[in-house]
Amino acid sequence: MSPPIWLITGCSSGFGKSLALLALRSGHKVIATSRNPSKTPDLVSQVEKLGGVWHALDVCSPEPELAKAIEKATNVWGRIDILVNAAGYALLGAFETISDKEARAQMETNFFGPLTLTRLVLPAMRARHSGTIVQISSTAGLEAKPSRSLYSASKFGLEAFSEALYHEVKPLGIRVLIVEPGWFGTNFSQALVRPEVALPGEYEGTPVQSVLDATIAGAGAKAPNDTEKGCRAVFDVVMGSGLAEGVEGVLRLPLGKDCVARIRVKIEEHENMLKVTEKLWSSTDVDGSGN
């Protein structure tokens, strides 16, 4: 049986980089991609020495260009078994300071890029009745904190279309996995983008300022989660191996105790919301019984 073939975006750093190297060292075939491979020549060389190939791919390119990129990647080994949408960045700031141009750029990278690439690989996967789509989301795809309005919007959108897609393509033999990392030792804090418009003075001392300060301070702090271990968890779920042996059919993979803590908070918030609004939502029955 031939080894699985991965196409991974955002391989210059973070989860994309670590997952590409892990798959290659496990004997799989990998087409690693990034927007500017010339910026990481040593990494490109490392991937190629391990038997992988590296393609330039900007996920914000128009669909015809992305279609050519998928065709080129498919031609390397004849198919793509696993697509990992790992490319992304965070735009953080008070919502009112984020321009339309900045908002659209955030959505293009984190939402429309993965959406288009997913659409482009699906026909071949459908024809083979096999394939896996891995979407690298975030705890921001579960909880929208102050300063993360557009970043969370991009991840919420990614999760929503992927959840619907999960149910659409499962009967066709295609898997969809949403990965929700907590705080890992990636370059998230260093690579974040701030709006061109400065934060108005009225926001000083508010949650927006607090979250921004904490995020920036986190650039020099040690993350509680290890990226290599996180990627091993993703790899194991995709392959049904290791700690994920027997774990089948999951849509979401939370990574890190901090991520799970936020999920529990969201569950409590929803349960409380249902409790305090029960008289309202139960009063809308057509028969007027409220029962």
Rank of each mutant, 00 (worst) to 15 (best):
L243V: 10
A140M: 14
Q190E: 15
A124M: 13
K49N: 11
S130V: 05
E202H: 07
L120E: 01
A86I: 08
C11Y: 05
V179N: 10
E204M: 09
F15K: 13
L115G: 13
G173L: 11
S18C: 12
V250N: 10
L7A: 02
V265G: 14
W183N: 13
G52C: 08
A219R: 08
A86T: 02
P114T: 12
A164L: 11
L115M: 12
R126S: 04
G240C: 04
W54P: 05
I136V: 11
D226M: 09
L83P: 06
L57D: 07
V197G: 11
F161R: 01
E269G: 06
W54A: 03
L19G: 11
W183D: 14
T74R: 09
Y166T: 15
K266Y: 03
A223R: 03
E163W: 08
I263D: 04
L21N: 14
D58V: 02
S137I: 03
L7K: 01
S152H: 07
S152L: 02
T33E: 08
R104Y: 06
G182F: 01
P4R: 12
V238K: 01
L243I: 11
V76T: 09
I174N: 08
D213C: 06
I31Y: 00
K222W: 11
G78W: 07
G16L: 02
H28N: 06
H167V: 01
A261Y: 05
M107R: 00
P37T: 06
Y89T: 12
G173V: 14
P62S: 10
R252E: 06
D226F: 15
G131A: 05
L50C: 04
V211L: 15
A214H: 14
Q135V: 01
V84C: 03
S147Q: 11
S45L: 11
L91F: 04
D285E: 15
K17W: 14
K266W: 00
G14Y: 04
V59F: 08
Q106L: 12
K279V: 08
E268G: 03
F95E: 07
D213T: 02
C11G: 00
Q190W: 04
M273C: 13
T206N: 10
V134S: 09
E102A: 06
V208I: 01
G27F: 13
V84H: 03
T215W: 07
A140L: 14
D100A: 15
G10D: 12
G218L: 07
T116N: 06
G185F: 03
E180A: 03
T277L: 11
Q106M: 09
P207C: 10
G249T: 14
F161H: 09
L177G: 15
R194C: 07
A221V: 08
N187F: 01
K229E: 15
A261K: 13
L24Q: 03
Q209E: 14
L117Q: 02
V211W: 12
E159L: 00
K39V: 00
K72N: 12
